[in-house]
Amino acid sequence: MEPLITLVVVSGLALAANALWLHRERGIELALRAGLCAMFLLTGTVHFVGMRAELVDMVPGGLPLPSPELLVTVSGVLELAGALGMLVPPLVPWAGLGLSGLLVAMFPANLAWALSEPDLPWWDQLLPRTAAQLLFLAATLTLVRLTRHRLPARHLDRVGSPMP
């Protein structure tokens, strides 16, 4: 629930600040960048402090990895790198693509956890958790679409044509 609240509140505050004071074009882009940056800073940080043990427990068994701890560390580093990529305009579409891939790759762990834990709060149960993941993915992909003109031309056929 905290990541969703962070995304919505920070994006909303950034959108309001843009409307009231900044008056910059691409206000939606700036709001999404701010919200996603804050959200992934939060989720990346808890891979190392606060919830590390719970995240290690969420890793599905049977993955061909040396250890679940390594997967949690790597995914945390990738989330933090993606969050920081939101701060550098030329990196935003790449960060958005990377974070989108990470959300898709981590969904099976979220799914397995939601199905295996009997006493989860309502927001961590299967349907709300899936809806939140889809919202996060929609936010990252929307940001990629808004910033795709910054991608080299040879990659545009995968994402779409450049914006005018």
Score class of each variant (00 low, 15 high):
A95N: 01
N110D: 11
L99P: 04
A139M: 05
L134I: 11
A53G: 10
E29M: 10
V77W: 10
G12E: 07
L115I: 03
G101P: 06
D119G: 12
R154Y: 11
R150Q: 13
Q125F: 01
A16R: 13
L7I: 03
I28E: 04
F40G: 05
S161Y: 09
M51S: 14
L137R: 06
L13F: 10
L22P: 00
G44C: 05
L36E: 08
L115N: 10
L36I: 15
A14R: 06
I5Q: 10
E79S: 08
E69Q: 13
L13N: 07
L141N: 10
L4R: 05
S161G: 15
M51C: 02
E117Q: 15
P68H: 13
L91Q: 05
S75C: 04
G76M: 08
P164N: 11
G82N: 10
P162H: 10
G61R: 15
G50N: 07
A139K: 09
R148Q: 14
L30W: 10
Q133F: 02
F40N: 10
L20C: 10
M58H: 11
A34Q: 05
F107Y: 14
L146E: 12
R148G: 06
R26D: 15
S116C: 01
G62D: 09
L63V: 09
F136N: 07
F136L: 12
W21Y: 14
V74G: 03
L32G: 03
T140H: 11
L22K: 09
T45M: 06
G160T: 09
V104G: 03
V159Q: 05
P128T: 03
D57G: 14
L84N: 00
L156T: 00
P152S: 11
P152M: 13
T142Y: 01
A53F: 00
D119A: 15
L91P: 01
L97Y: 01
G160R: 13
R33I: 00
L4Q: 06
A53S: 15
V72S: 02
V59E: 12
P68Q: 06
D124Y: 12
E117F: 01
H23C: 00
W123N: 10
S75M: 01
A95E: 01
G27A: 12
V10M: 06
P3D: 02
G50I: 07
L99H: 02
L156N: 00
R129L: 08
P164K: 12
L15T: 00
P121N: 13
D57T: 08
P118F: 08
D124C: 05
A17S: 14
L70K: 04
L22E: 13
A16Q: 03
L7R: 02
G160V: 02
L143C: 09
V46K: 07
P128Q: 08
A109I: 04
G62K: 10
